[in-house]
Structures are given as C-alpha cells and as structure tokens.
Amino acid sequence: MVGQKHLAGATAVAAMFSLNGALLGMWASRIPAFKDSLGLSHAGLGLVLLFLAGGAILSFPVAGRISDRHGAAPVARWLALANAACLIGLALCPNLATLALMLFLFGASHGAMDVAMNAWAAESDRASGKTLMPVFHAIWSVGAGLGAMSGVTAVALSTSPLLQYLVAGTAVTIFSMWCAHIPWQSRTGQSQSAAMFPLPKGPLLLVGLLCFCSTLGEGAMADWSAVFLSDVTGAGEGLAASGYAAFSATMILVRLSGAFLIRVIGPVAATRISGGFALTGVVLTVSFATPSATLIGLAFLGLGYGLVVPMAFSRAANDTSLPQAQAIAQVATLSYGGMLIGPPVIGFMAAAFGLRTAFGVLALLALLTLLLATVLRPPPQ
C-alpha cells in the first residue's frame, strides 16, 4: 500500500513536469511564426522576451513562500491551470504590446509552477527514499519535446498557433491534471520572515551561478534554436522547428540515465562531463553552421545541459539553512533566471554581432561549468 502511494505521488509529480515542459515547448516551437507575423527583428524579439523573463523571476520568491505556507502539491496544480490559460492567451495577442503583457503572465505562471513542482518532487524523493529528481526533469524534457513536435506537426498542416494551443495544449492539460489529482499531504506552514526577493548566499549562491551557466544556454536553445537553423543555416521552417526537439531528445536520454550516473560517479564528476558535452555542442553549432552540424550540436548541448539543474535543485532542497521551497526558489532566481534572460541576451548580441557570435558566448559558460562543478557536493548534515 505504501509503495502504491509513492508510485501515485511520483506519477502526479511527473505529470506536472511533463505539462510544464509541454507548454514551453509549444511556445518555443512557434516563435518564428510570432516573429514573422509581428515583423520583429532579432533585437525586437529579444526585447519582448524580456517580459517573459521578468514575469518568471518576479514569481520565484513568491512561489517559494506560497508553496511552503500552503503546500507544494496544491499550489503546483493551480499554477498548472494558469500556465495553460496563458499559453492560449499568447496566440490571441493582436500586437506587440499585448504579446509582451501576456508573455509576462506566461513567464510568471511558468516560473512559479516550476518552483512548486520541484518542491513537490523533493517531497516525493524523501517519501520514497529514491533519487528521482533527474527522472522528473527527463519527463519535463519529454513534455518539451512533444510540445515542440506538436509545433512541427502544426507547421506541416499549416495550422495556426491558436488552433495548435487550443487542441494540443488543452488535451495535455486535462490529461496531466487527471494524473496529478491525488491525495498528497505537502508540508505546510514553513514560510519564514525574509526579504521579498532574496538572492542565494554562501554555497547556494554558487549552486545558483552554476545553474545560471547551464540554463542560460537552455533558454537560448528554447527560443533561438529554430531561429538559428532558419536564419543562419537556411533550414526550412519544418526542419527549424525540429531543432528544439533534437535538443530535448538528448536531454531526455541523459536525465533518464542520470540517477544511475550520479550514483556511480557522483554529482561533481557528472557536472564536469556535462560541461564538456556543452562545450562540444557549441563548437559544432557555431563552427560549421550547416543544418546537419547544427542538429548534432544541439544534441550535444542537450547532453551537456541535462543533469545540472536536477542535481542543483536536489542540492538546494537538502540545504539545512532554509525551508525547501524557499531554498529552491533562491537557486531558481539565478538558474531559471538564466533560462529566461538567455533569450533576450542572445537577441541583443545577435543584433550587434550576429547570431553565430552570440551563440559562441555559450562556450564561455560551459568552461565556467567545469570550474564550478565542486559546489554540488552534498551539504554536511
């Protein structure tokens, strides 16, 4: 009976991760359509994506407080519905101003849900006595890949983003909410007095910085991989939309095997290997800039970015200085801040120096990942 309860809990958490990833993948796969319909330049797209980043970053500490006070599980479920509604709202925006506002709301609901579901995942790990965080993040990548593939299918069928979001987005939301609607007693009342928007300190600051290096690149892949394939390599819209799917597929692979890998070699060595894969991916993508080389490079980048975030969030959840959701939220301020700041940064750099040069900056972040790997050693108990 206990085993069945833990399985149901893990399934519910997995449903939240897959939904969160799918909604982002649906948005990311159709960015070229939004860019073309509104006539945005690289800099213009980068600017509007700042609103998505801002919404997410502002939501992190609030989500941590609410999750610790009211329970991660119910908060994650309510935020899932809000995030799905905001995705549909994006496709209804008639101009740049309304798109910016809706991106802010989409980013806020997405980021807040991310904090709550990771706190729920940490509760599931403790309840089952297993390390499933990399698997949950693998399932996030499965969702992101499927969301991106729904964009590929929609492009092939000449379907608008609105119809795609209504059909695919609603279907995956209903199924995920059904899977996640189980009795689960999250810890509540843990919220403590703290600054409204605290940055991590001490070891958690370095953990957050390590995540920043990885997730800035991950965010760049989400919002610029299709544009890079289209504008730099000359790939058609269908092939360009598949770039993020290739990236997500290798993230799935490394995250599904991540629990075994971490158990065998430890988080520090796993992080160093991740940095090497990321560096290889950047070199392949930037040096050759052909559709085939770029797709291979994106695959290597997926291998490089796959394990850093789940390892870092596990490290934060086990920190002894803060309630778990607030610790996760503090690391998320830098980590997912990197994911959401990355796209506008790439946009501004692309406008100034070209998209290939902008992508080359990711090589420096991969090198920094190698240097910061030791911060993921488990904290002293």
Rank of each mutant, 00 (worst) to 15 (best):
H42I: 00
S225H: 01
R263G: 09
A195R: 15
W78A: 08
A84W: 04
G169K: 09
F106H: 08
G258N: 00
G304W: 04
T188W: 11
G276T: 02
L38Q: 14
A332D: 01
F136W: 03
V283R: 09
G258R: 03
Y336E: 08
I57C: 02
C211P: 02
A121E: 01
H6P: 03
A56Y: 09
W178Q: 14
H181F: 14
S150G: 04
A363C: 01
L362V: 04
E237M: 12
V75M: 06
L81Q: 11
I31T: 01
P310V: 02
T153N: 06
I273M: 08
G55R: 07
S67H: 12
A168M: 10
S314W: 01
A249G: 09
V283C: 08
A325Q: 01
A235P: 03
W78T: 13
W224K: 03
M349K: 13
Q164N: 15
S214E: 05
S158H: 15
G297I: 02
V254L: 08
V2N: 15
T170P: 00
S59I: 04
G145H: 02
F212G: 07
V254C: 05
A56W: 01
G276H: 10
F136E: 02
I182T: 13
A220K: 00
P379F: 10
G258T: 05
M349I: 08
W184F: 01
F136D: 07
T11K: 13
R65G: 03
T369C: 10
A350C: 09
A241R: 01
A351G: 15
A180G: 09
F277I: 05
H6K: 13
L103C: 05
F197R: 11
V172T: 10
Q4Y: 13
L364F: 14
G44I: 00
L199T: 09
A119H: 10
L58Q: 12
A108I: 03
Q190C: 11
L132N: 05
P198Y: 11
F348C: 09
A259W: 06
H181D: 11
S321Y: 13
A316H: 06
R377I: 10
S274R: 11
A14M: 06
T250Q: 04
A249W: 06
Q381C: 00
E237Y: 09
S225D: 04
A112L: 05
Y244Q: 08
P379T: 15
L79R: 07
G275P: 02
V13T: 04
S242K: 06
D223L: 00
D319A: 15
T285A: 09
L96D: 11
Y305S: 04
